[in-house]
Amino acid sequence: MNISLLFILKESIEGLRRGLFHSFIAAAAAGLAMCVLGLFAYGALNLQRTAQGLLNQMQIEAFISLALPESRHSDLQRAVETLDQRWQVKYVSRTEAASLFAREFDSQLFDVLKANPLPASFKITLPLQSVQPDSFRSAAARLIALPGIEDAVYDSDLLNMIYAGKQRLSSWGYFGSIAIILIALGLIFNAARLKIDAQRDGIHLMSLLGATPWMLRGIYLTQGAILGGIGGLVSSILIVGLRFVVQMRLAGGIDLVLPHPYLPAVGGLLLGMIGGGLAVGRYLRV
């Protein structure tokens, strides 16, 4: 193994052992930072996923004119499907509409009316990437333009609300994550600086005895990676545990996702390295 690498590894590990208190503070800072960052990122992701799930359930209902004979409904379905082949089109006959209505509202109503006033319809689900207000507006307009379609409706208020909420979540997610990453880096940087400051005489001495700046920087990069990694690993375990507890409480409810649960550990390792590397910089000007 390279001699500098051996020196770096030896000094890193012994340095952690010698300054146990400062090492603990630095690992705790990294763990706390990665916990906050992980909870925020996974929380934002799950909220976004919930919003997207709600959006995916949105449909356009295109009502077929009562004047159009039922025998022509299948022709009309083909015409609707031709408008955009990615649409999922489901035909709801007048009888099905009546039974749906009866199930949801008043089953007695048709007995009073003695006839079924509800038109047949198509329930159209747009492809996932098109679930946004503009796509719904233009799809509804194209449907209404078809001869035989009486009206095309969707809950635009609900759509606008969920869509705007999802967009806001997305922006806040990005900006929030960047802000928390910077705060986490600051926290780790300061914890690392505290540790390095306690060893500044040693750094200066090693430099005068012939240690190159990269050998010294390497020690603190390695220590930062180890402490950040440990802190991040603890936060990964805490987040996975928290998800398990919350999921138990939400029994039968929303399914929380936790993609790549090792990310806080990797993030801690990287932020630890960056924090350690930056913090030692000012002590290397010898």
Binding site: K10, G210, A211
Partner: peptide
């Protein structure tokens, strides 16, 4: 002060590998 006398004397030797 956090190293033994042996390690203090050995420090330049650790550095030179």
């Amino acid at each position: 002060h956090d190293r033994t006398i042996f390690d203090n004397i050995a420090l330049p030797l650790y550095i030179t590998g």
